[in-house]
Nucleic acid binder design. Structure first.
Lengths: 198, 198
DNA sequence: TCCGTATGACCGATGAGTAATTTACCTGTA
DNA sequence: TACAGGTAAATTACTCATCGGTCATACGGA
């Protein structure tokens, strides 16, 4: 009557499956409200298996973070390398939409606002965010310099706003899932054109 | 040896004090991570007193929500009435900075991202946010119409971005507390001037 | 003596993390 | 080929801490 015993699923594959489901659960509920049992239940396995593979809830979160962090950094980095055009913001967004199209909750996990305010997770997330911010920084610095403003705090603020604006777009997208990545890109092009002087 | 018994603090005054401290605690940690015992400890009282006055954690949160919600709605509403100028965004921000200057965590409480996704708190917060959004909607609609875009979803998206942008500014401010409200207004004026076509 | 202010000590639920155990597969050997 | 036994996959059933919420009770002033 005991259901224990291998189900023929190798560790690597099981880990991938767990990470996939955990990203959805953590992205949707946030670190604070998500529970390991729920993730296990959704994966059709039991909690100790997750602890056996990832050690702790934070370990699992870190694994998810690496996944989505690498995905997003690569996407944005590739977009920067590809485009020499000055309309950098839109290219970045387009790349992000394509990347997130394959992993709906990627952005929510990296920018989870319910993360504990200190510790390994916080540090890792901060590092990934900083890498994204650095790539985006060139654009906002440009914008301010062209308007004749050079206060470094202004630049920091605009950068911060940019991160939140992208988060806003991503959240809006999860509330309108019928929109394709191309739809989103077109929409953002219109919004940006209404904002940016040209 | 029992410390029970009145300390000469009337209910109304005590409630104000508790709400003030709760706004800080809830704004800083968020609904999900804040605990009633901690709020009580910070207020120098015991947990049952809070339950006696507010009934539940959610009741306490609702009281805080009314406080900050009224504060913010009044501020933004007054700013709209006052200014006939087209530079509506900056006026709104200035009013917000002044209001939040007296209640640092007001915005964080209303826009707490750790709120449960359903229930009385969610509903109340959504109502207050909608009132703020409605007032701000005129501005963003204007912006898009002037650029020749009329898709209602575009308007919804820009509105959403605006809310998040303000949240970004408010969070940035809590990370730079030495800035005065006037500093913040000036800074945002520079950033807006770099963004908006004129 | 009543009523409003206030508390310490408890209850129950939830959720992170662990121990002990069971099952299935693979592999070397007679 | 059959079997012993090691190892990886998986579970059930716990512990422990935290936190929302309640109860009975203690003070102190009109």
């Amino acid at each position: 009557m005991n259901k224990a015993g291998t189900k023929g699923v190798a560790r690597a594959e099981r880990e991938r499956q767990i990470i996939g489901i955990a990203i959805e659960e953590l992205g949707e509920r946030g670190h604070a409200r998500a529970s390991v049992v729920d993730i296990a239940r959704r994966a059709g396995i039991s909690k100790p298996l997750i602890y056996g593979y990832f050690g702790s809830k934070d370990g699992l979160y870190l694994a998810c973070l690496s996944h989505v962090g690498d995905l997003l950094v690569e996407a944005v980095d590739a977009a920067r390398a590809r485009s020499g055009s000055p309309d950098h913001a839109l290219d970045t967004l387009a790349a992000l939409f394509d990347a997130v199209g394959t992993c709906r909750y990627a952005w929510s996990v990296l920018y989870d606002p319910t993360l504990p305010p200190a510790g390994a997770i916080h540090d890792a997330a901060t590092r990934y965010r900083a890498r994204l911010a650095d790539i985006g920084a060139a654009g906002s610095t440009d914008l301010l310099r062209r308007a004749g403003h050079h206060d470094p705090l202004d630049h920091a603020l605009l950068n911060h706003i940019w991160q939140y604006a992208v988060t806003a777009v991503m959240r809006w997208w999860t509330d309108h899932p019928e929109q394709s990545p191309a739809d989103m890109t077109a929409r953002c092009a219109r919004v940006l054109s209404a904002l940016t002087p040209n």
